[in-house]
C-alpha cells in the first residue's frame, strides 16, 4: 500500500496546469480529491511519474447560477454540493446522490469532477449527470469544448476526456416547477459502491407522466440511460403496471459484472427494484 516514486506539482491556475499536462504528457495525472486515484497508486495499479494537484486552483470550484444555468466547478467537493442551498432548491437529485456517496471523509475531499472523469461505472455522478442532461465544459490547449454527459462515458475508465484536457465545469439546467426526482441506491454498507442504483427525474401533468429520465449505476460497463424504461412511462398514468414495465425495460439493458456484491441475476433484479422505488418516490415529489 505504498505508491512508487512521483513528483508533485501544485499549480494555481488552469493555464499553468494545462502547460504542466502538456509538458509531462502521459506520465502525468491530475489530482483532485484523490479518493479514486490514490488507492490505485497505493496498489501500484497507477504509477504516474507526475501528480498535478488541482486543489490550489480557485477558479475550478464553487457553485453559481448564471443565465438560467447552474454551473458547478469540477473541484467542488461532495460536501459542498450537499451543503449548497441553491442545489437543494433547484437540483435536489444531485444533493440526494452526493449524500449517498461513501462516507464523510471521502465526501469532504472527493470532487464531482473527479467522480465524473474517473469513468468508473460504480461512481454515482455519471448516472446522475446523464439523468440531469448535464453538459461538461472541457478545457485544453486549444480552448474549451462542451460535451453532453450522455456522450462522455465510453467504457469502464474510458471517457471522451483527452489526455491534455481538464474538466472545468458541469452545467445543469435547474428543475422546472413540479419536477420530482429520486436516487435509490442499494449498497452493502456505508462506504460501499452501489450493488445497483437508479436515478429518476419525473414530470407529471395531472395524472399523466409528461417526461421521464431514468439512469442506472453499476449495472454495466458505463452508467446506463434506460430510454425504453422512460418510454414505458411517458404519456401514461403512473400505475403498478407501467412501473413494472419500466423496471422490466431497465433490467433488459443491464449488463453487470459478477462480484462479491452479487451475481448477474441479482444485480439485474436489484436494478429493476431500485427503478421501481425511485419512480414511486420521484412521483411523490412532483409537487
Amino acid at each position: 500500500m505504498i505508491p512508487s516514486v512521483f513528483e508533485y506539482h501544485a499549480p494555481s491556475t488552469v493555464s499553468e496546469a494545462l502547460s504542466l499536462l502538456g509538458q509531462y504528457g502521459d506520465g502525468a495525472k491530475l489530482l483532485a480529491g484523490g479518493h479514486s486515484l490514490l488507492p490505485m497508486m497505493k496498489l501500484r495499479f497507477a504509477e504516474p511519474a507526475h501528480l498535478i494537484d488541482l486543489n490550489k486552483i480557485r477558479e475550478l470550484s464553487g457553485i453559481r447560477e448564471e443565465g438560467g444555468v447552474i454551473k458547478i466547478g469540477a473541484m467542488t467537493s461532495e460536501t459542498a454540493l450537499i451543503d449548497s442551498a441553491l442545489l437543494q432548491k433547484k437540483i435536489p437529485l444531485l444533493v440526494e446522490a452526493a449524500s449517498l456517496i461513501a462516507d464523510p471523509q471521502v465526501r469532504n475531499r472527493g470532487t464531482i469532477g473527479g467522480d465524473i472523469t474517473h469513468g468508473d461505472p460504480g461512481n454515482d455522478h455519471p448516472a446522475i449527470t446523464i439523468a440531469l442532461d448535464a453538459k461538461f465544459i472541457l478545457v485544453g490547449p486549444k480552448g474549451e469544448r462542451t460535451v453532453a454527459a450522455g456522450d462522455f462515458f465510453l467504457g469502464t475508465y474510458m471517457t471522451d476526456l483527452q489526455p491534455e484536457e481538464i474538466l472545468k465545469e458541469i452545467h445543469i439546467k435547474p428543475f422546472a416547477p413540479k419536477t420530482g426526482s429520486a436516487y435509490c441506491k442499494l449498497k452493502r454498507k456505508t462506504g460501499d459502491f452501489a450493488t445497483a442504483a437508479a436515478a429518476v427525474v419525473l414530470q407529471m401533468s395531472g395524472d399523466v407522466v409528461s417526461s421521464a429520465r431514468i439512469t442506472l449505476t453499476n449495472v454495466g460497463p458505463i452508467a446506463l440511460h434506460a430510454q425504453a424504461a422512460e418510454q414505458a412511462l411517458v404519456g401514461k398514468p403512473l400505475t403498478d403496471a407501467s412501473i413494472a414495465a419500466a423496471a422490466a425495460a431497465a433490467m433488459a439493458i443491464c449488463d453487470p459484472a459478477e462480484d462479491l456484491r452479487g451475481n448477474i441475476e441479482y444485480k439485474t433484479a436489484m436494478a429493476g427494484e431500485m427503478t421501481k422505488r425511485a419512480i414511486r418516490l420521484a412521483a411523490t415529489r412532483c409537487k
Binding site: 452493502r188 454498507k189 456505508t190 462479491l260
Partner: peptide, 11 residues
C-alpha cells in the same frame, strides 16, 4: 475493507 464487512455505526 471495501469488501470485508466491518460495520460502522450506521449498520
Amino acid at each position: 475493507l471495501m469488501d470485508y464487512f466491518l460495520p460502522t455505526f450506521v449498520e
